[in-house]
């Protein structure tokens, strides 16, 4: 208690209702007057600058999601996951033995094959599958996508592993993330 009183009284004595106070109030009034002149104008200018900056940023830079990136990442990921699924179900396989070949298209022939969207379709063949299987990709703006495989070729939601357990089927649906900064 005594400390608080002492400190308070000292600060009043040093910088209380003396010149400092008046100066500060003056400054505040001036500022209030400046703000009072055009309160909306300042906000509007700030808003316009921010929006313009956002607009410039949103049209700058290259495409994060391209056909080549989607195809390459799908092939790599599928090879890894197919080998995993085959190994789990008692048919040991290495990713290098899968030999996937994918052709991806976004939204049909009239739509450019770039950018995120839920309308990416990939036709893919791999070892033992000469008839292409259709993979539906939902590509997000963060350059990650969820690929859903054709159930008739990759199996259902779960598969039975060598121990007889029901485990998640790695290729039924899977998440892949691409490097947005990579070229191509």
């Amino acid at each position: 208690m005594t400390m608080i009183t002492k400190t308070a009284s000292r600060s009043t004595a040093a910088g209380g209702p003396g010149t400092g106070w008046v100066k500060r109030a003056d400054k505040a009034t001036r500022r209030r007057r400046w703000q009072g002149l055009r309160p909306s104008a300042g906000a509007a200018v700030t808003g316009v600058i921010v929006l313009a900056g956002a607009a410039v940023l949103s049209v700058s830079g290259g495409q994060d999601v391209t056909q080549v990136k989607v195809q390459d990442s799908l092939q790599t990921s599928f090879a890894n996951l197919w080998a995993l699924q085959q190994t789990e179900t008692g048919h040991p396989m290495r990713p290098t033995q899968v030999h996937p070949a994918a052709t991806c298209d976004k939204g049909g022939p009239d739509v450019p094959d770039v950018g995120p969207g839920g309308d990416w379709i990939c036709q893919m063949t791999w070892t033992g599958q000469t008839e292409p299987g259709k993979f539906e990709l939902n590509v997000h703006a963060n350059s990650c996508y969820t690929a859903s495989g054709p159930g008739s070729k990759v199996g259902s939601f779960t598969v039975t592993d060598t121990d007889g357990r029901e485990v998640t089927n790695p290729v039924y649906a899977f998440d892949v993330c691409m490097d947005a900064d990579a070229s191509a």
Binding site: L57, S58, V59, G61, G115, P116, G117, H140, A141, N142
Partner: peptide, 16 residues
């Protein structure tokens, strides 16, 4: 950031 086609704007957001 989840809207497509915002390019660099997406990267300028802290939530990204």
């Amino acid at each position: 950031g989840a809207v497509g086609g915002t390019h660099l704007l997406r990267r300028a957001l802290p939530t990204t």
